[in-house]
């Protein structure tokens, strides 16, 4: 009983975290057809900005509860700056290239950002535990859970809802969907694809940074976290089907729950399970679970 509870809670917490990271990645791919390797760096930038500012904030003796707003604000600013800088300053000159070339381009950006992070924040770890401990812990049955993790679930639910709502219930979202479906036709119908690309990339970068900022209080922020995270996010979006936000949601749940199961039953299989599940899904559904089908052309 306790085991099932632990697997469920850990799994859902981990899934929420994965979805936060993967949402921006899959959104950018869906709209722009760029599998953005630098997405992990956005996460890292968010985590570093969050952790360092939280440190300063608490050192200044400011009201602790507002620190959560600070995390959101930090992610917004970081996402806006980094997203705009990369999209407007560089990426837009590369549009129209092969998808594989775009992977390599974003790989180059990732390498640059990784060292930029080291130059800006150094290589020593950052801790921003205050927002995490502030919420305390809850005991369910004989198990103790951090309330911050529950908040993470709620935050993810809100983010998922906002994404779903704005994609399906707003005019801007419908335009975005039309671009996801067929970029050329959308362009021909007068949709300003350039503007949409910029906005999408900034939103994607914000989501990445936000995931990092929200994670920072629970971990020690060290160099290389972005590199670790990006491959997890890849697994999630590939399972769900590249470009599908709903797919990323399902993918995150699958990966999160199977990892939690493995952690509690067979800890040595933790990493193996994630990619094993991915391999299994792809063996039967090469395009992922919710891929947007593309016609074969002759």
């Amino acid at each position: 009983m306790n085991l099932a509870l632990a697997v469920l809670v850990d799994g859902v917490v981990y899934s929420s975290w994965l979805f936060l990271i993967a949402a921006g990645l899959t959104l950018i791919y869906g709209v722009m057809k760029i599998l953005n390797m630098a997405h992990g760096s956005f996460y890292a930038i968010g985590a570093y900005s969050g952790a360092s500012l939280i440190g300063v904030y608490f050192a200044g003796g400011n009201p602790p509860w507002a620190s959560y707003l600070l995390l959101i604000g930090v992610a917004m600013v970081a996402g806006l700056i980094v997203g705009l800088l990369i999209e407007r300053g560089f990426l837009r000159f590369m549009y129209g290239r092969d998808e594989v070339v775009m992977i390599l381009v974003t790989y180059g950006i990732l390498l640059i950002l990784e060292d930029t992070i080291k130059l800006l924040w150094g290589v020593d770890p950052y801790f921003a535990y205050q927002p995490y401990t502030l919420l305390g812990r809850t005991k369910i049955s004989s198990l103790s859970f951090a309330n911050y993790d529950f908040m993470l679930i709620a935050v993810t639910a809100v983010v998922a809802f906002i994404l779903w709502w704005s994609l399906n219930r707003t005019k801007a979202g419908k335009i975005l969907q039309s671009v996801i479906h067929d970029r050329e036709i959308a362009g021909a119908l007068g949709v300003n694809v350039t503007k949409i690309f910029t906005i999408t990339f900034v939103i994607g970068a914000f989501l990445g940074a936000f995931a990092g900022a929200m994670t920072a209080p629970g971990i020690s922020v060290v160099p290389g976290i972005g590199i670790e995270v990006i491959i997890l996010a890849f697994a999630v979006v590939v399972i769900g089907g590249l470009g599908s936000v709903g797919g990323a949601f399902v993918g995150a749940l699958i990966v999160g729950l199977s990892r939690a199961l493995s952690v509690h039953l067979y800890p040595d299989g933790e990493l193996f399970v994630i990619y094993g599940v991915m391999g299994l899904v792809l063996a039967f559904r090469p395009q992922g679970l919710f891929a947007i089908a593309s016609a074969r052309k002759i």
């Binding site: 599998l35 890849f234 590939v238 040595d268 193996f272 990619y275």
Partner: peptide, 28 residues
């Protein structure tokens, strides 16, 4: 399995397989 894939799928899927080995070795 991999010879059925192209483009980014080939790239990502081959990466996943190497990460499986990594995951196994780290825990061995």
């Amino acid at each position: 399995l991999l010879s059925r894939y192209r483009d980014i799928f080939f790239a990502m899927f081959s990466m996943a397989f190497s990460m499986i080995l990594y995951g196994v070795l780290v825990k061995s």
